Deep mutational scan, measured.
Amino acid sequence: HERALMVNRLQKLTRMLRVHPDPKWKQEQQELIKRLK
């Protein structure tokens, strides 16, 4: 369940980064990718 939330968050971040590349979001995205591996 928590994994699904993280995947959701990651997808949302990816969409937001396409619109507005924010370093903070980029960092969070990298963190999520690490944790999901």
Rank of each mutant, 00 (worst) to 15 (best):
D22L: 12
Q29M: 15
E31I: 10
N8V: 11
K24L: 08
Q27D: 08
I33E: 04
R35Q: 11
H1C: 13
E31F: 07
V19Y: 14
Q27T: 11
R9L: 07
P21R: 08
R9F: 04
Q29T: 07
Q27L: 08
E28I: 09
K26G: 03
A4S: 10
R35P: 00
K26P: 00
L36I: 07
K12Q: 14
T14Q: 08
Q30L: 13
L32E: 01
L5R: 13
R18Y: 06
R9A: 03
W25T: 06
D22N: 15
E2H: 08
M16F: 03
Q29S: 05
Q27R: 10
V7H: 08
R9G: 03
L10H: 00
K24F: 05
T14N: 12
R18N: 06
R18W: 05
V19I: 13
R15D: 14
Q27P: 01
K37Y: 14
K12N: 08
L32I: 09
K24N: 08
W25F: 07
R35H: 07
L13N: 01
P23H: 04
E28Q: 04
L10C: 00
T14H: 10
M6T: 02
K24Q: 07
L5W: 15
V19R: 13
K26T: 07
Q30I: 10
V7S: 04
L17P: 01
E28D: 01
K34N: 10
D22R: 09
Q30R: 12
L32F: 01
R15T: 10
R15Y: 05
R9N: 02
R3N: 07
N8I: 15
D22V: 06
W25N: 03
D22Y: 10
P23S: 06
Q11F: 11
T14G: 04
K26M: 11
L5S: 11
Q27N: 05
W25I: 15
R9V: 03
R18D: 06
R35A: 12
E28V: 04
V7K: 04
E2F: 12
D22I: 05
L32T: 00
N8D: 12
H20Y: 11
L17Q: 02
K37F: 14
L17Y: 04
T14R: 11
P23D: 04
L13T: 01
L17A: 06
R35Y: 06
V19A: 09
Q29E: 06
T14I: 12
R18S: 08
E28K: 01
H1L: 13
L5A: 13
D22M: 05
Q27Y: 06
K34W: 07
P21L: 05
H20A: 05
K37R: 11
P23T: 06
R18I: 04
Q11A: 11
L5K: 10
W25V: 03
K24G: 03
M16Y: 05
V19G: 13
V7M: 15
L36F: 01
K37V: 09
E2D: 11
M16V: 02
M6Q: 03
K34A: 12
L17G: 01
H20M: 09
N8T: 14
E28N: 02
M6E: 03
E28T: 02
V19F: 13
I33Q: 03
R15M: 14
K24Y: 11
P21Q: 11
E2C: 15
Q11D: 05
R3A: 04
H20R: 11
K24V: 13
H20E: 03
N8H: 14
K34T: 08
L5M: 13
W25D: 03
L32P: 00
Q29H: 06
R35E: 06
K24D: 07
V19L: 12
D22F: 10
H20W: 11
H1Q: 11
L10P: 00
I33T: 03
L32M: 02
H20T: 09
M16K: 10
K34L: 09
W25L: 10
A4C: 14
Q30C: 15
R9Y: 04
A4H: 12
M6S: 02
Q30S: 06
V19D: 06
M6R: 02
L13E: 01
I33V: 07
V19M: 11
V19H: 07
K34E: 11
L13D: 00
H20V: 09
M16T: 15
L32D: 01
K12T: 11
W25R: 05
Q30K: 06
K12D: 08
H1M: 14
E31Y: 09
L17S: 03
Q29N: 02
M16R: 04
L36A: 02
E28M: 06
Q11C: 15
R35L: 15
L10M: 02
E31S: 08
K34S: 08
R3I: 14
L17T: 01
D22E: 07
K12G: 03
M6I: 09
H20P: 00
E28G: 01
Q11S: 14
H1R: 13
R9K: 04
K26S: 06
R9T: 04
K26V: 10
I33W: 08
K26H: 08
R15P: 02
M6K: 02
L17D: 02
R3M: 08
K34M: 09
L32G: 00
Q29V: 14
E28L: 08
L10E: 01
L13Q: 01
M16L: 09
L36D: 00
Q11M: 13
L5H: 14
R9Q: 06
K37M: 14
R9M: 07
K12W: 15
K37D: 05
A4V: 10
Q30F: 07
K26F: 09
R9I: 06
T14Y: 10
D22H: 12
L17I: 11
K37N: 11
P21M: 08
L10I: 08
K12F: 15
T14L: 09
L17F: 02
M6A: 03
H1A: 13
R3G: 05
K34F: 12
V7T: 06
L17C: 03
Q27V: 07
L36S: 00
Q11G: 06
A4T: 12
W25H: 07
E28S: 02
R3T: 10
E28A: 05
T14D: 09
R35M: 05
P23C: 01
L36E: 01
Q11E: 11
K24C: 14
E2N: 09
D22K: 09
K12P: 00
R18P: 01
K12R: 11
L5C: 15
L13K: 00
K37E: 07
E31V: 05
T14W: 09
L10S: 00
R35S: 02
Q30W: 13
E28Y: 05
R3L: 14
P21Y: 15
M16G: 03
M16P: 03
M6P: 01
Q29F: 13
P21C: 14
R15V: 10
R9D: 02
R18A: 15
R18T: 05
R18E: 07
V19W: 10
Q30A: 10
V7R: 12
D22S: 08
R9E: 03
R3S: 05
P21E: 09
L32A: 00
L17N: 05
Q29D: 01
E2Y: 07
M6G: 00
I33P: 00
I33R: 08
K26C: 04
L10Y: 03
V19T: 11
Q30M: 13
H20G: 04
H1G: 07
Q29Y: 14
Q11R: 15
E31C: 15
Q11Y: 13
L36N: 03
E2K: 07
R3K: 12
L32N: 03
L10T: 01
V19N: 13
Q30Y: 11
R15F: 08
N8F: 09
K12A: 15
H1I: 11
K34Q: 10
L36G: 01
A4N: 09
R3F: 15
R15L: 14
R3H: 10
